[in-house]
Structure formats: structure tokens, C-alpha cells
Design a protein around this nucleic acid. Structure first.
Length: 646
DNA sequence: GTTCATTCCGTTTTT
DNA sequence: CGGAATGAAC
């Protein structure tokens, strides 16, 4: 039966509500996939009676593929997706009841742009939009507005109204609208309850209040719930996720069972042993131990470098060496923060190592690409004033913020209507320019050209291309190349919304944040920047246990080799500052870890400093330790405990 | 109203 | 250091 171990098999066959506590690499996805496939193959359920939520769209895709390879093409009838995507479908199917039409989702950048324009106009200048957005989103997710200030409530009100006039929902609305629908229309809820006989929830440790309510509403006597998660991998509390839901599962769902998967099939014993050692430092946790199935002589390496340049070069050297021996191995470099990712690019380029950046960064985040995308969005939706205000500035047309603000405050649903209604309040020259532009946009919107060809025209005829420098022109060309496969603008917009950028080549070194690496695995994983303040991050002081879980997630991504590194001096804000190694390094234990230095030269004869013993001269250097003469006293100390002096 | 130069200021994670 | 806000000059 799908080649499962005893515990996994028990989970697959279980007919009650079930919580699977699945440690990293214990075959969590395999178990869900097997369970769904088993129910369908046994004729116990039809594909459309199964609903499965995943954490990312990528995970949904993967799950779909794997079920398909078990049961064949009718797997496509299973409802698999993120909460947000499933909710969007439900909202769209019930638009009349919710008093909406042609609903669209407002992506993050547009939410921010909208807030910015509200804040500026309302003279709440002291409030920072990005911070404000976070506060509002969190309040909406938790459905608790008590601790918002009067100003914030005021802004939220305007924000919601503006969303409504655009027929748009933000991410939090998707869930709350669905909950609203189910709570107000029990007959609708009953329909969903009857349809979905098996409900699977992946990454249950990272659900929030709204998602919890959603699950509670949908689950009932006549259907079966199967939740999978690992409390040690909860890393999204900043988004309102709460570990308490997984901890209380069995009390909450009466008659439910629990199965714990501890047998790890992913990583070597050395990686498992240091991961176990690390996570044991958390106090709030269910005792659980990963058991290795792969044994190896290769230790987890902890490297120290003098500075970031040496660290990144050291990483590149190791990669280059490995590429000669194992050209097929998958390699990732995982960072605590997204901004660290760009720092290593230079080293990778000069070492001639191909890489891909995974996440929302890259081409789509470049300003000029966002500009051209705002044209696409506006062509698809003439009421999209946010896209309009962006494309109005690309290229510059001599119409600025003041005019734009008047337009956005005017009556009318489409931008054209607004412009016509604001005619008297703006200069006649601006008015004429605006109408011309709208006219041109309408022509493009009605054009019968294929989408890529149309966009090429837009790029040229709008004057956008001409206004850019060479570098930016290249990015636009790359973007045009990338849209070749799309039939029309709607298909492309849909793609933008739901697909994480596919890494173009699995053989490239993958660069991403630890958060983005959740659920993935690689043969070799590099973890740079393990320093106090960076990882654990200085702003996460109050939540060290979550940072430690994050470190645990990072380490357990590695199959055969993990390299942790830190530096003695790191540049921040244009200045070098000295650095303390991350507490997580010593928490890896010493049993499965080797301490090394990126410095190729031996330290013999060098003057060094030790925290306890002070200054000394190195007499001999080993792999992990050095013999140092402190005054008259010879001591053996760990390489990581000494630093070289100039 | 727009553009360019100068000053200021902050450290995170994302469907 | 680098992005965002501010202010001065067309």
C-alpha cells in the first residue's frame, strides 16, 4: 500500500477525525496523498468529495501531481489549494448572496498603494503605511478591533469602502467573506458540508483564528477531518497563526485520534541529531524526537568568516567543489531576511555559479516591470484606479499627484467616468491629455491582437520603453519574453496572483528566505548569517522560540549536508560592527558538528583574541581546535572561540 | 506640477 | 548602505 510504514498506514486507514503530528521529513505529504488516493481508489469517495488545503500554491501543485500519478487524471476534480484560493472560488460562486460582482483580489502592493493614498489625503502623515497595513490586516484576520486607535479605525473604514467600490477583496477579506457567507446562510454551509466528505488541512500548526473558524464551520458529523502539522515548525505567528490550535485539536474534536510520525527519511543522522539538539532548547513544545534512517560520516559544518565577503566566497568555493563531484545535487542558500539575498549575488556571479532567486523578488519586483503590469491590469479592469495612477507616471506625462488625487476622489466607478466628473477641477490641458490616454487604453483593451503582441505594442506606443535606460529596457524585454505562453491578459493576471515564480532550473543554486523554504528539501543547504541580531533577528527578541523553530526548519531542509556560517564583523548601515555568534550554534550540540574556518591559511603564528583568556599566539591549528599560547599557558581552544588580531 | 539633489532613517518573516 | 521623504529649482 503505497510503500508506507506502520504509522503512516494507520493514518491512511483511520476513519475518524485525525491529527497527524509529523516531524520534518517524515513523509507528511506522502501520507496525505496516500490517504486521499486510497479513499478514491477504494471507491469510498469520489474525487470531488475531497477538499485539501495547503500552505502555498506550490505545495498545492505538488500535491495534485502526486495524487494524479496515483489515481490518474480525475484527480483534477479534487479541491486542492490554499485557504485563500479555495475561499476565492467559494466567494465567486456565491457573489449574489454577498452582494458583489466580478470579484478580484487586491495584491499586496496594491493594498499598500491604496493605504498610502488614503493616509496622505487624510493627513495622518505620522502613520507609516506598511506598518499600518500590517496592523489592519492582523486585526482583520483575528476579527478583533479593540486595540485599534480611532485614526486606524477611521482609515480602515475608508479602506474597506474603497475596496468595495473597486469590487476588490484583500487576503483577509477572502476568509472573512466565506465565514460570513456560511454563518449567515446555513443552507449554503450545508451544501459544502455535504459535498466534502474528507477535509485535509496541511501545515495545521500555522493556521490562524479565521482559518480555524473556517475549519470548525465546515467540519461536521458526516464528514471527516484530517489535519497534519508539526508544532516545532510553526513560523508564521506574525501573520496571526497560533500553535494552540494544533495543541488543542484532540480536546476540540471529540472522538478524534492522533498519530505521531517520527521516522525521518530525508536527512542524515548528523543533521537529525543537531536538529533535535537545537529544538530541545524550546520549552513550549510537545516532546518529540526525529529518528534517522540515513547514516553518514559527513558532519554538519559550522564555518566562521572574517566578514560577509569571505563568508560568501567560502560558500561559493564549497559549491564549486561539490559541482565537480555531484553535478546533479540540489543546493539552496537560505537566509533569515530577504535583503540578505542580494548580497551574495556578486560572489555567485564571479564564481560563475548559476542561481535562481525564489520568492516574489526578481523580475516582477522591478519598478519598470510593475509599470508595464499596471497597463495589463488596467486593460483588464477600467475601474482599477491604482494601476491607472501607476501607468500615468510611466512614462511621465506632466500630470502629477495633485491631479491624480482629485481623480481618485471623484464620483464614478470607472476611471474614465471619474475623469469626466472632475473636468471642472483640473486644468484643461491635463483633461485633454487624460482623455487621450484613456482613448488609447480603450483601443488596446479592445484589440484582437494576441496578448504578447499587444503588450509589445503597448510598451512601444505608450512611450514607456523610450523613457527607460538600457538596463531597464532589458528588463522589459525579458518580461516580454516571459509572457509568450499566455493567451490573454486575464490568464496572465491569474498567473501573477497565484503562482509562485517557478524556479527555472532545479539545478541552479536556489536562494530564498527560510520562510520560503518551508516544505522544501535540498541535498545541500547553506545557512549564512547565524549571528545574534540577524538570526535570531533583533526584532524577534520576544519570540526566541519561534526563531529557534525557524532555525530548525532551515536545518531540516538538508538531506545530505548542512553548512552553517557566521562572521566576526558584519557591515550594517554602512558601518562595520562586531558580531556575536548566534546562540543557536552552540545549541546544535558538539556531537554531530564540526567547526571550521573559511580562512584557507593556517592560523599558526597568528595573534588571536579569546573571550576568556585574552590575547595569545597560535602554535598549531587543527580542523576544529587550535593550540594557543596565552602568556605562559598553553591551551586547546575551539577555532570558533578565537578571532584573529591585526 | 515635475524633477533632481540632499537629507533622513531604519534594522523580519507573507498567502 | 540604500530607499523614502523632503525641499529647491525649473
Amino acid at each position: 500500500m503505497y510503500d508506507l510504514n506502520a504509522q503512516q498506514k494507520k493514518a491512511v486507514e483511520c476513519k475518524n477525525d485525525l491529527l497527524i503530528v509529523a516531524g520534518a521529513g517524515t513523509g507528511k505529504t506522502k501520507t496525505i496523498v496516500s490517504k486521499i488516493s486510497y479513499y478514491i481508489e477504494q471507491g469510498l469517495l469520489l474525487p470531488h468529495q475531497v477538499l485539501a488545503t495547503t500552505f502555498t500554491n506550490k505545495a498545492a501543485q505538488e500535491m495534485k501531481h502526486r495524487i494524479e500519478s496515483n489515481i490518474g487524471p480525475h484527480a483534477s476534480l479534487i479541491a486542492i489549494g490554499t485557504f485563500h484560493k479555495l475561499c476565492l472560488k467559494i466567494v465567486q460562486d456565491n457573489e449574489e448572496l454577498l452582494n458583489m460582482s466580478k470579484v478580484q483580489v487586491l495584491p499586496y502592493e496594491d493594498q499598500l498603494a491604496l493605504l498610502k493614498s488614503i493616509v496622505r489625503h487624510m493627513q495622518y502623515k505620522s502613520l507609516k503605511p506598511s506598518h499600518l497595513l500590517e496592523v489592519l490586516q492582523r486585526a482583520k484576520e483575528k476579527d478583533v478591533f479593540d486595540n485599534l486607535t480611532v485614526d486606524e479605525l477611521n482609515i480602515l473604514d475608508i479602506y474597506q469602502n474603497r475596496l468595495k467600490s473597486m469590487n476588490a477583496l484583500d487576503f483577509a477579506d477572502l476568509l472573512s467573506k466565506t465565514i460570513l457567507l456560511w454563518e449567515n446562510y446555513p443552507s449554503v454551509l450545508d451544501r459544502y458540508r455535504e459535498q466534502y466528505k474528507l477535509i485535509c488541512v496541511d501545515e495545521y500548526q500555522d493556521i490562524n483564528e479565521a482559518q480555524h473558524r473556517w475549519i470548525k464551520l465546515l467540519s461536521c458529523e458526516t464528514n471527516q477531518l484530517c489535519c497534519v502539522g508539526d508544532p516545532d515548525q510553526a513560523i508564521y505567528s506574525f501573520r496571526g497563526s497560533d500553535i494552540k490550535y494544533i495543541l488543542q485539536f484532540n480536546e476540540e474534536f471529540v472522538g478524534s485520534e492522533k498519530i505521531v510520525l517520527e521516522q525521518n527519511y530525508r536527512s542524515t543522522d548528523k543533521i537529525i541529531s543537531s536538529s533535535n539538539s537545537l529544538i530541545r532548547y524550546n520549552r513550549k513544545r510537545i516532546e518529540k524526537n526525529l529518528l534517522p534512517s540515513v547514516f553518514s560520516d559527513r558532519y554538519v559544518d559550522v564555518f566562521v568568516g572574517m566578514n560577509a565577503k569571505e563568508e560568501y566566497k567560502g560558500i561559493c568555493d564549497i559549491i564549486a567543489k561539490d559541482r565537480l563531484i555531484n553535478p546533479q545535487s540540489t543546493i539552496a542558500i537560505l537566509f533569515r531576511t530577504a535583503s540578505q539575498i542580494n548580497e551574495i549575488e556578486e560572489s555567485l556571479i564571479s564564481a560563475n555559479i548559476k542561481y535562481s532567486i525564489v520568492g516574489s523578488i526578481q523580475l516582477l519586483d522591478r519598478a519598470e516591470v510593475k509599470d508595464i503590469i499596471s497597463y495589463v491590469k488596467f486593460l483588464a479592469n477600467p475601474a482599477d484606479i491604482i494601476s491607472f495612477s501607476r501607468l500615468l507616471q510611466a512614462p511621465k506625462r506632466g500630470i502629477g499627484e495633485a491631479t491624480m488625487e482629485k481623480i481618485s476622489l471623484a464620483d464614478g466607478s470607472t476611471v474614465k467616468e471619474k475623469i469626466i466628473n472632475v473636468k471642472d477641477k483640473i486644468s484643461s490641458a491635463s483633461y485633454e491629455k487624460l482623455l487621450n490616454l484613456i482613448g488609447q487604453l480603450e483601443l488596446w483593451a479592445e484589440s484582437k491582437d494576441a496578448f504578447p503582441l499587444l503588450m509589445e505594442k503597448v510598451v512601444n506606443e505608450s512611450g514607456l520603453f523610450e523613457s527607460l535606460d538600457t538596463n531597464r529596457k532589458e528588463n522589459i524585454m525579458r518580461w516580454l519574453d516571459s509572457i509568450g505562453e499566455f493567451k490573454d491578459k486575464d490568464e496572465y493576471i491569474n498567473y501573477l496572483l497565484w503562482s509562485n515564480i517557478k524556479s527555472d532550473d532545479d539545478n541552479n543554486v536556489q536562494l530564498m528566505t527560510v520562510h520560503a523554504a518551508k516544505g522544501l528539501e535540498f541535498d545541500i543547504v547553506f545557512l549564512p548569517g547565524w549571528e545574534e541580531g540577524v538570526f535570531p533577528h533583533i526584532l524577534a527578541r520576544a519570540n526566541i522560540e519561534e526563531e529557534r523553530r525557524l532555525a530548525y526548519v532551515a536545518l531540516t531542509r538538508a538531506k545530505s549536508y548542512a553548512v552553517v556560517s557566521y562572521v566576526q564583523s558584519r557591515m550594517q548601515y554602512g558601518k562595520y560592527g562586531s558580531v556575536i555568534p548566534s546562540r543557536f550554534i552552540k545549541e546544535l550540540g558538539s556531537q554531530s558538528v564540526q567547526f571550521k574556518s573559511f580562512r584557507s591559511k593556517s592560523m599558526t603564528g597568528k595573534k588571536v583574541f579569546h573571550d576568556l583568556f585574552g590575547y595569545g599566539i597560535v602554535e598549531e591549528t587543527g580542523m576544529r581546535h587550535a593550540q594557543v599560547l596565552f602568556g605562559n599557558e598553553k591551551k586547546i581552544v575551539e577555532l570558533s572561540s578565537i578571532s584573529e588580531c591585526k
